[in-house]
Structures are given as structure tokens and as C-alpha cells.
């Protein structure tokens, strides 16, 4: 469902963030995207949701050529990819419920359907009792989980997470990783960018490793 074919990304500054990256992911796969910071993990994720355009190469998502996608189609592409951002990207002037409901409102779902789906997503991440709270009153881990609820509420076929366990203690990291594994079990394709090698080794799924913009290793499965 997701194919990178000789993808390179060079920024105007001259820095080559990705060079000649190729890999393929089938629907329902679970992969870690690893590498030291600055290796190109974030760039790779930005390319998938067309926040950046590749300098060379092709990206195919569900049969659609992402690097040739028109600006007006970008919104529809992003509706098919749930993204958990490293900095959460929550709206601080809205409560938890409204934050999670946002993708459904954009998608034009009926209010009754939105209510049901938001509640289900929030209870899935263990925040059912926080829907009227504002993000600022939540801990970092809770904000992270609001971000996860928002990423999955639209039932996207692909879920991306950028350092979802970055600043969390091991206990919380495990909980959140379990969540992603559960989503994967019901068929969601999951890509998690992380530099936490111990976590990757413990779970032992496919690993797409980037080193200075180059794909170093791809094991399937270990």
C-alpha cells in the first residue's frame, strides 16, 4: 500500500535529507522507522502526507502517486493517514473532545456519528473521563494519547507516529506501544519513527533504518 522508489529529498539549503530511499509496505504491516536524529525519519513521514515534496523518485500510496498529487487532493490524502505528531499538534483553545472530533468534522460526518466515534477513540486511549478537559491541563503522556485518539478516530488505513514515546517513562511507553499493536491487529498499517532501539528490539517487528538519509537495513520480519 506504500511504496518508496528511489526517493530523494534535498532542501534548498543543500542538505540532502533522503537519498535514493526505496522500500515497500503491504497493508497490515507494522514497521519501525529508526535512525539517529537528523537521519531523515521526520522528512520521510512528511513526504508521505505531502507536507514536503520529494526532489526525486516516486511515492505511491494506495495506488496514488503522492509526489504528483495536486494541492487540492492533498487534503483527501491526509484523511487516509492518521499522524501522531511529536509535538502533538493539539489545539489549546478547544477541549479534548473537540480536538479528537476535528478530523470527523472535516470529513463531514453526522454529529451523532462523531459523538460515538470520539467517545470510542477516547476510551480506547483511556481518556474517556477527560473529554471536557483542555489540553493544557493534561500531562505530556495524556496529550500524546489525545493525539493518538485524533489520529485513529477517522479509521485511517495508515497510521504514522513520530517519536510517540519520546519523553515518556518506560511504563507509559509500553502502554502506548501496546495501543499501536492493537490497532495493527485490527488491520491498520502502522509506521512508528523512534530512536528507542531497546523498544524496537523488544517488539521485534520490521525495521526500516535510516542513516544519513540512506536506507541501511530492512528486515522483514526479524
Amino acid at each position: 500500500m506504500l511504496t518508496f522508489d528511489q526517493v530523494s529529498k534535498r532542501y534548498p539549503s543543500g542538505k540532502e535529507a533522503l537519498s535514493g530511499v526505496s522500500f515497500n509496505m503491504e497493508a497490515g504491516e507494522f514497521a519501525f522507522l529508526t535512525g539517529h536524529s537528523g537521519a531523515g525519519k521526520s522528512t520521510l513521514m512528511k513526504l508521505i502526507i505531502a507536507m514536503e515534496r520529494p526532489t526525486n523518485g516516486q511515492i505511491l500510496f494506495n495506488g496514488e502517486n503522492v509526489n504528483r498529487i495536486s494541492n487540492s487532493r492533498v487534503a483527501y490524502l491526509r484523511r487516509q493517514v492518521g499522524v501522531v505528531f511529536q509535538n502533538h499538534q493539539l489545539l489549546f483553545d478547544r477541549n479534548v473532545y473537540a480536538n479528537v472530533a476535528l478530523p470527523l468534522e472535516i470529513g463531514g460526518h453526522r454529529p451523532s456519528e462523531i459523538r460515538g466515534r470520539v467517545r470510542a477513540a477516547l476510551s480506547k486511549v483511556g481518556l474517556a473521563d477527560r473529554e471536557n478537559h483542555f489540553p493544557i491541563t493534561l500531562s505530556g503522556g495524556e496529550q500524546q494519547r489525545v493525539g493518538i485518539a485524533r489520529a485513529v478516530v477517522n479509521r485511517p488505513p495508515l497510521l504514522l507516529a513520530d517519536e510517540p514515546t519520546g519523553n515518556l517513562d518506560p511504563e507509559l511507553s509500553k502502554d502506548i506501544m501496546d495501543l499501536f499493536l492493537q490497532f495493527n491487529q485490527v488491520g491498520v498499517t502502522v509506521v512508528i519513527a523512534t530512536h528507542d532501539i531497546s523498544l524496537v528490539e523488544r517488539i521485534g517487528n520490521r525495521r526500516i533504518d535510516l542513516n544519513q538519509g540512506r536506507l541501511r537495513d530492512s528486515k522483514w520480519p526479524i
Partner: peptide, 27 residues
């Protein structure tokens, strides 16, 4: 869990009348 399963883009399942209704609702 069942209602969180991935089943493709939700937009494609909406008919034209649903989308018009959503458009009117947002307006």
C-alpha cells in the same frame, strides 16, 4: 475495538447527499 478498524477512506463511503448535508451543516 470493532468500530476502530481500518476500512479505507471514510470519505469514499459517503454519498453525494451525505456530503451536501455535511457541507450545509458546516456552512
Amino acid at each position: 475495538m470493532a468500530n476502530l478498524t481500518a476500512s479505507g477512506a471514510s470519505l469514499s463511503r459517503q454519498g453525494l447527499s451525505d456530503r451536501l448535508a455535511a457541507w450545509g451543516r458546516h456552512h
